[in-house]
Amino acid sequence: MSLPQHISIFCSQSKLPMRVFTTCFVVFVMTLFSSCTVLQYRKTDKEMLQTFQKNDVQTSFVYHQVDSLNFKVRAQKVSKDGNTYNIIFIHGAPSSLVAWQAFLLDEELASRANLYAVDRPGYGYTSFGKALPSIEQQAIVINGLLEELNLKNMVVVGSSYGGPIAARIAVINKNVDGVIMISAAIDPSIEKDIWASRFTRWKLTRWIVPTGYRVAGDEKKVHAAELQKIEKDWPQVTVPIAHFHGDADDIVPVENLVYTDSAFAKARTKTFPDVGHELAWKNPEIMKDEILSFLKELSKSKE
């Protein structure tokens, strides 16, 4: 089906005048052209090192070779001698490890655990632009990095699309002590079809969409099906699960908390009033406190 046909059908279904939609579409295209670089959500190692040096924080980057897929997974590390726990941060879509910058720069978090932020396949500097829509494969790829680093006592934190990946890693890696999901899209039955993501799929519009958004669109297209493939294994997750969600989230429904409560043996859920999907990014201090509290609870359970 051509783009004009798509537009006509959309306008007739939504009762939106063709001229209004056309104007909006032109503005949309112009915005994309003006922001293609900005909306890639990624920074080079050099750029990140400069930021951390200005904040007097030591950091480094790790690259894990994935021979079967012919790419490398990039991860950023902030660590201190003597830390027992390792926190792994997995971003949503579209995004990159840059999204976790405030967390890796946090002195209190860094004093309690070694911090790692990962570029998921298709984003940042991990096979940028090449989508890997399988949640299972993404978990396997990221777990390969964790195994190469020989990490123990891990808490895996996943935001939005990264939430189920974090939980899946707990299925395949027995060194995971706990999982934190933030605004996670994990219930396949209520996955929302965001109509704007269709621009990433149409041949006539896909080329003008920033690369990160194209990857996100490819993931979104099969997300519900991918969640269905792995949900039978959630009973295998016996470590504590914490799921935090804003009740004003208009991208990932807060009802995902109900699913988490029923799917995992040791689930704890918490709703934040009047907060949208940006829970982790607009409220880093709140999430930092929740992570520290989670670590404290894990430490007590091991005493």
Rank of each mutant, 00 (worst) to 15 (best):
D45V: 05
K46N: 13
T51G: 07
K54P: 11
K54E: 15
V57G: 06
T59W: 09
T59E: 04
T59M: 14
T59K: 01
D67H: 04
S68T: 13
S68K: 06
L69D: 14
N70F: 13
R74Y: 02
A75H: 02
Q76M: 15
Q76W: 05
K77I: 00
V78G: 07
S79P: 10
K80H: 12
D81I: 08
G82E: 09
G82P: 04
N83T: 14
T84P: 01
T84W: 03
I87F: 07
I87C: 04
I87W: 02
I88D: 01
G92N: 13
G92C: 10
G92M: 12
G92H: 07
A93V: 04
A93Y: 01
A93C: 11
A93G: 04
P94D: 00
P94W: 00
P94N: 00
V98Y: 00
A99S: 14
W100S: 05
W100E: 02
Q101D: 11
F103Y: 15
L105T: 10
L105Q: 14
E107M: 02
E108P: 06
A113K: 01
A113D: 09
Y116C: 01
D119P: 11
D119Y: 03
R120V: 12
R120K: 15
P121G: 14
P121I: 12
Y123Q: 01
